[in-house]
Design a protein around this nucleic acid. Structure first.
Lengths: 388, 388
DNA sequence: AATCAATACTTGACGAAGGAAATTATTACG
DNA sequence: CGTAATAATTTCCTTCGTCAAGTATTGATT
């Protein structure tokens, strides 16, 4: 029997939460291996899993391959029923809304976006409502099994209250976004900072799975960093955390809008790259795309600007590795950013400055599909299902 | 009735552990306030506290002052019985052993030290045995109620196994120090990295009390940092963490023995200060004490060296604040180091580079009594009583 | 084929931790 | 001196998870 969606909390006991989370993040697992992993008895796992299976969130897989040496009853691993429930994720940028519908495994089913002409709260909420309708009523018919929406916003966001304290791109101050978005969409809303949302997605559904500590670095206009330490996202006592972009790596470098000097962002952020490229070429109208083209075309001066930027990013990443020693670090470029121009130099800077065994920290450098931000928001929404 | 020392684990249930830890770190607390703080019912606190009182670890204080508006039964707060058990802490340096006996509140009762002529494992263990005997059989007669010993060693230490993987000053490789020290002393031994031990002491018994995140920076020959994030000490997945000394803060700065450039330690570590002072004065025999004297006497060139060093430290601390956002940061100088020459510049560098609200992170800059390292070791030993 | 060994899972009794509510203790205040 | 207010304790009870026994399903052995 499949319970109706929206019937209260998903898990009742700590054991059930642990079981569901483990299956969600670590893929199909037999009950015994879950018991081992979670420090429970297998009886407890059986009991915790039953209601989740009855509710349709977990399914028993047929035994596919032998696990042990030979004999024994084959395991019937527990897996997530991905299409049991769908989650909407929307990233709010200064230009547009990017939205996706994800299943329980955080796989994207549908995506859409809408330009934002007016950045006022009301206008954005209206567009948000239209986008959510478009997503849920579109192909796939996800509306019936969707009840949660995750929103990702850059800036100072309080996830527990759903309040956007300050968002620089949107020029929002103290917007109770959770309540407002819930009114407009009728869904249960979670609001999170965009970089933290992306980090959560990577921690639960990406390369950070199973890691006690983990870092994600985003390169673009700003240079940000999400940190997971001791198994939990780092928030910062004064609302500041992961500001890798404002680590000072060059005492003789350019001054930054933040008041510091030689900040990574003031060297390697998109505006800084553009500024340097304009100075170098003498063309005041030059764009970041022009700079990328020139560098890819072999322009040495522009190439050097990207090289210096990549090196600065590498130094910032080394600072992260030296300080918190994450199990791995993922570096992602925003949208179509020129990560290929950065990669080599990021690695060089990192390897030069990483201390001792910190160089062993694996670095994944890869482009970031633009809808990945929205997927991050959906991932936070999925997380809110088990950890409200 | 007071149970004999050594009668197994101190706390049986999670609630008892929580209660004891809270009283230990947050001072005397009534049962109701403990219940509130720990999310327990007051009945649970009563039950958890009883065996601890019977064993003599907790005591009930007489009601001293009214808590509420007026009426009501006065609270009888629970407090630690400081002299219920004593803990030996020893810091092993390249020159000497520094030892203390602390009570349950981590207050130092006795201290002593022994020079180390031979840094071989056997020689050090022999001296350790003599030092522990001296400490426990000296004034106070602590032997009868001491059963635990904490050891602090610089370098790569595995606390869970008590193995010293590598210690540069001692030139030790893979020494099973916990077993060996237990044989020699007959005590239950805990081994921890020195900076982590100091951080633990500050987190449980000093300025870090109650903080979910907290950082301690030590300035001396090396520049180290202990981090507490999400309530737990940061260890680093690859064995590296808190290496604030090897954050690169000056791309044009001196190269460091680690291979990096412009490392904080290569600018502000004691050897770096001495090197620069010798170059500046042309006196190759100049010591750190000479440099401090000159700077205090108004030598502008030497003063500038300390200023630059302090500034570099401040930049490193700003990196910590920007990345993990600790609730507060304590900066301590080793031994008699010239923290007064650094302080102003540390603050200046920090305030310049700290991003946004990170400047609000309180910075305590203060000298570090040399026996504080040994107290850190004792604090880890106390911690092992409740979290084995 | 029949049996045994090995492994996965389920079931039901049980224990213990913590909660709810009533009770006792101790104060201030009228 | 009674009443309100707060603290602590006691008693009873719920419930989560374990234990130990039992069932299910396979491969290996005779």
């Amino acid at each position: 029997m499949v319970t109706e969606i929206g019937a209260g909390a998903l898990t009742e006991t700590p054991a059930a939460t642990a079981v569901f989370t483990a299956v969600l993040t670590e893929g199909p697992l037999s009950r015994v291996s879950l018991a081992h992993r979670l420090g429970l008895s297998s009886a407890a796992v059986t009991k915790a899993a039953r209601p989740l299976i009855e509710m349709g969130y977990l399914q028993e897989l047929a035994a596919t391959e032998r696990t042990g040496p030979g004999a024994g009853r084959p395991a019937s691993p527990l897996a997530i029923q991905a299409d049991r429930e769908f989650f909407v994720g929307v990233k709010i940028t200064g230009d547009e809304l990017i939205g996706v519908v994800c299943d329980l495994c955080a796989d994207v089913r549908v995506s859409a976006h809408r330009p934002l002409a007016d950045l006022g709260v009301e206008a954005v909420l209206t567009e948000l409502g239209l986008l959510v309708d478009e997503l849920l009523d579109g192909p796939g018919g996800h509306r019936a099994r969707a009840r949660r929406l995750g929103l990702a916003v850059s800036g100072d966001v309080d996830r527990t209250t759903g309040l956007v304290r300050y968002s620089p791109f949107l020029q929002w101050h103290n917007v109770p976004l959770r309540e407002r978005a819930a009114e407009v969409t009728g869904l249960t809303v979670t609001v999170e900072n965009d970089v933290k949302a992306l980090t959560t997605a990577e921690h639960w559904f990406g390369e950070g799975v199973g890691a006690e500590s983990f870092a994600l670095v985003t390169v673009g206009t700003g240079i940000g960093c999400g940190l997971v330490v001791n198994g939990r996202l780092v928030s910062g006592s004064h609302g500041v955390a992961g500001e890798i972009g404002h680590i000072g790596v060059d005492a003789t470098g350019p001054t930054c809008h933040c008041g510091g000097r030689g900040c990574v962002e003031a060297i390697a952020g998109t505006p800084a790259i553009v500024r340097q490229a304009r100075e170098s070429t003498g063309r005041p109208e030059l764009t970041i795309d022009d700079a990328v083209s020139l560098a890819r075309g072999g322009d040495e001066k522009i190439g050097a600007i990207f090289a210096r930027g990549g090196d600065a990013i590498g130094l910032g990443i080394a600072a992260v590795a030296n300080l918190v020693g994450p199990a791995r670090i993922v570096v992602s470029g925003e949208g179509l950013a020129a990560y290929d121009l950065f990669e080599k130099h990021i690695r060089a800077g990192f390897e030069r400055q990483a201390f001792g065994a910190a160089v062993e920290c694996p670095l994944s450098i890869r482009p970031l599909p633009f809808e990945e931000w929205a997927r991050g928001a959906a991932a936070v929404s999925i997380q809110s299902l088990v950890a409200p």
